[in-house]
């Protein structure tokens, strides 16, 4: 759990750095990501080669934002088992075969590989969005596309309190584990009062925080004072990538490239 908190803080820090990607308008990044995800998952279940060019997006954004790949790869690895768990049944149930380069392969495996690639791409794109934008700016972008005020506010507050409660919880867990050596987790019998007392403390804190907000003139509006307009660069980013996604979706680029090369060699 400490890892989770550290991850949140790290992503927060990453989002606060200055680089070409972080400087883009949050709305543009949000839209690009959503479109990207839709394009990725829209490919047929046996598709592999046509999917591959889509890896350009995370790779380029990654490099432009100067992110270290290690952490994000770890995140992807963390989500993988779930997808593999369901996808692994594809080879079991799908016995149709196809011949590729003189070897016969089950279509189930193709769909499995396709699924895994999609998983890698979608997870990477999602993490990139947060790592280059940050929660508060995403909230602002959500407001622009018309998400109700109360939801965005609620989201930002939740996000803020995860860190605070996380610290409190870490202290409680430490105290618990010191008195319960060798236990894994908390006994179910004690769980209710353990979590319950954390909850009550949280209630009290919520009230104090709300009081603190009201004392500084809070009337239900979360003013971030950050209303940058969408600029030319933002539009270029959005249109450029979306065009690329659409071209990738419409033409099997690796296949074109491959036929060109094999054609040339063949002659």
């Amino acid at each position: 759990m400490k890892d989770s908190l550290r991850d949140i803080r790290l992503l927060d820090d990453l989002a606060r750095r200055q680089n070409p990607i972080n400087k883009l308008h949050p709305l543009v990044k949000l839209l690009t990501t959503i479109i990207y995800l839709a394009v990725v998952v829209s490919f047929g279940r046996y598709e592999i080669s046509a999917l591959l060019p889509l890896i350009f997006y995370p790779v380029v954004v990654f490099a432009l934002a100067e992110l270290a790949p290690g952490r994000i790869l770890r995140r992807i690895a963390w989500v993988m088992p779930l997808v593999i768990g369901i996808g692994i049944f594809n080879p079991v149930f799908d016995h149709q075969t196809v011949t590729i380069m003189n070897s016969t392969i089950s279509k189930g495996w193709l769909s499995f590989i396709s699924l895994v690639i999609k998983c890698v791409l979608t997870v990477a794109a999602g993490i990139l969005l947060v790592a280059t934008t940050g929660m508060e700016k995403l909230g602002a972008a959500m407001r622009i596309i018309g998400v109700p005020k109360i939801m965005v506010l609620q989201l930002l507050l939740t996000y803020r309190y995860i860190l605070l409660l996380g610290d409190e919880l870490a202290r409680m867990l430490r105290a618990y584990s010191l008195r319960a050596p060798g236990h894994r987790g908390i006994k179910l019998a004690a769980w209710g009062s353990f979590a319950g007392s954390l909850l009550l403390r949280s209630f009290d804190r919520a009230q104090r925080v709300y009081a603190a907000m009201c004392l500084r003139g809070f009337k239900g509006d979360y003013n971030t004072g950050d209303d940058a307009k969408v600029g030319v660069r933002d539009l270029q980013f959005l249109i450029g990538w979306v065009a690329f996604f659409l071209i990738t979706r419409s033409y099997n680029l690796p296949f074109l490239l491959g036929s060109f090369l094999t054609g040339v060699i063949g002659q």
Binding site: D12, R16, G134, M135, E136, L157, R160, L164, R205, R208, V209, A211, A212, M213
Partner: peptide, 10 residues
């Protein structure tokens, strides 16, 4: 408790 008063990200 300053944590009650500080709730933004910067």
């Amino acid at each position: 408790d300053p944590d009650d008063q500080l709730f933004m990200t910067t």
